[in-house]
Amino acid sequence: HDPCYYLDGRPRHCLSEFINAAYGIPANASYSLQGPDYDSNITTLTDLHNPHNLTCWMAHKGPDAGEWVLTLPLGRRFEVTYISLQFCQQGEPSDPISISILKSMDFGRTWRPMQHYSSDCQGKFGLPSQTVAQTRHQETEPLCSDPRPLQKQRGGMVLAFSTLDGRPSSPDFDHSHTLQDWVTATDIRVVFHQVSIEAKVAPPSAVRAPLALSDLQVGGRCKCNGHASRCRRDDTGQAVCICEHHTAGPDCDVCEDFYCDRPWHRATPTHPNPCVACECNGHSNKCRFSMEVFQQSGRRSGGVCQKCRHHTAGRHCQYCQNGYTRDNSKPQNHRKACQPCQCHPLGAVGRWCNQTSGQCLCREGVTGLRCNRCAPGYKQGKSPLRPCIR
């Protein structure tokens, strides 16, 4: 049973599987105290996490000075629910922690912060320490909070950031474009900031607990806009939505060819918003969407059929071309629904006839659907210019 359809075939809102989007993706690390220094393809942070056999990662030049940055290219758009960092140390670190989580929506070209963690939010980031966005305007801005106390788990401590926690619109996520945008990311970056001066001059008696990471997870779903229940790796290793509801594109964010009678919409639990086929009566398999037509129809139908075949014409290929008339003995979708006018070469003016009745335009004294007879009071003459004479 396909989760994107009811048993009776009606479309329904569907979600792709919730996965660890970071799993198996190599992270890149850079350290920037004295110029950039890169480690790429760090795979131990995103492999299967085994608390009995931890691999701990830290920057080459030491964790307690400078700034190091971990970047995780997810390879496609995901709707991220949480980002978690599992540290190796068992207890709270003695040094202050300042961490920022950022995201990119354009495959690493631009970045925006999602969350800051610091025991000194005001001093480090100029932000108050808060865990809840006060207004809907603030819900797509990074908040800053004290990471402590960190959750303790077997094998270390965990810092988990939930993208929707404390966001006023989160109960209405399916209808909030703002929040849908907020959770969308193609790349995740974690920045471990330089510790404060005070920490560096801490008494040597303080126990230094180097910050070391053992696991990085990004929980979320492929962004398929409610139109796919599956997201699979293609031949190049990229995850792609298996689109339903006649949608297409890597995120099911456009309508499939020919299914453009209405504008594309994201599916919601109450409105699955499938893409709808154009009505071309079987005479065309190409159509385009016209917003003007859509508005004129009362927002019901905006598809305009193109390249109507079988001598048909019109937005739905519902008319016959000039020179052809409807054969009412055949259904409208029949390939011979339009037949030639068959106007008499002398009795009719031109070869055009009424598209629905087939009536040709007759010369004076000529009658009949095809203009092939003389009208009452007229008889056939000999001149082809005046076929019927009084």
């Binding site: 070469p345 002398l346 009949g368 007879r373 003389c374 009452p376 000999k382 001149s383 082809p384 076929p387």
Partner: peptide, 24 residues
Amino acid sequence: EVMPTLDMALFDWTDYEDMKPVDT
């Protein structure tokens, strides 16, 4: 009254050969 259809053979095509349909 059903009027007979125009009989192409009855027309005098002498001066109108260019108008004469191919199949008449």
